[in-house]
């Protein structure tokens, strides 16, 4: 998809790399310069002190531990959402009757954001890990369900019929025709689901921290909350934000690579 309306292609003389980093570098420098005008005891973050905070948090082990906690929750919660979403989605996609009956319920839950069910999760499971898992599972469930259902229901009917004319059993058709046909959709759903799951766990940890006076939940989200309300460490918060972003990017890239390897029949 190249630009159809290249009004200006004269900027070719500036190397691409330079253009790419120009704006981020300018902003970083401006931020640093601004921070240096502030008094020494300022709490305002600056790029230099963010780097220092990053080193400090890594060395103390706090950051790796919190990251592992959050990531572990996302994996488990995502797995729950994946199993439920794919199995129910396959049913919905394969059977109109199931779809007709379940869809109204699904559609009414969909506009309810994961964070809105957090209070219920806390009522049910307390402020520990299970509450976080259920929120992550809930968040990942919908993209998984909907893209699986869509992938399955859009399976080329001819392929199913072709398999039937070769005497392939129903179960094998499901495993050998419908699932592979729906795989691109399922993987897309997994990528989107993992993305929202990561956002959801941060939100959940943050909110659990904020609303239960710290609690004992742990994780990056709670770490951010502690920096906010106890140690008032804005540099630490910025470190956490960057880590959240890097992990999100990492997840996205990982799934894209997986898609390329698992779907070699697509150009």
């Amino acid at each position: 998809m190249s630009a159809t309306l290249a009004l200006s292609s004269a900027g070719r003389r500036t190397p691409d790399m330079l253009r790419a980093i120009a704006l981020p570098i300018t902003l970083l420098v401006a931020w640093q310069l601004w921070a240096m005008t502030l008094p020494d005891d300022t709490r305002a973050p600056s790029p230099a002190s963010v780097v220092a905070a990053f080193v400090r948090l890594c060395a103390s082990g706090n950051l790796p531990i919190s990251l592992a906690q959050s990531f572990g929750r996302v994996l488990v919660g995502f797995a729950i959402g994946l199993v439920l979403g794919v199995s129910l989605g396959t049913l919905m996609g394969a059977s109109r009757a199931v779809r007709r009956n379940i869809e109204p319920i699904i559609e009414s839950f969909r506009p309810i954001a994961p964070m809105a069910v957090l209070p219920i999760a806390i009522l049910w499971f307390g402020t520990g890990t299970p509450a976080g898992l259920s929120i992550v599972g809930y968040a990942a469930f919908f993209p998984m369900l909907l893209s699986t259902a869509q992938g399955v229901s859009r399976t080329d009917r001819n392929l199913v019929q072709a398999a039937r004319t070769m005497g392939v059993s129903r179960f094998r058709i499901l495993a050998k025709v419908i699932v592979p046909a729906a795989l691109p959709s399922i993987l897309l759903g997994a990528r989107l689901g993992m993305g929202v799951a990561w956002t959801a766990i941060i939100a959940a940890e943050l909110a659990v921290g904020a609303k239960s006076g710290g609690g004992s939940s742990g994780g990056i989200g709670q770490m951010m909350f502690i920096f906010y309300s106890y140690s008032i460490d804005m540099n630490g918060i910025v470190v956490c934000m960057i880590v959240v972003g890097v992990v999100a990017l990492f997840i996205d890239r990982l799934f894209r690579i997986a898609e390329r390897h698992l779907i070699p029949w697509r150009q």
Binding site: Q161, R164, T165, M166, G167, P180, L183
Partner: peptide
């Protein structure tokens, strides 16, 4: 019902893309 004694070749071939 369908059976392998009657093989079908479909208009768009119905090859499995994967």
């Amino acid at each position: 019902g369908p059976g392998a004694d009657r093989g079908v070749m479909f208009q768009d071939y119905a090859l499995f893309p994967w």
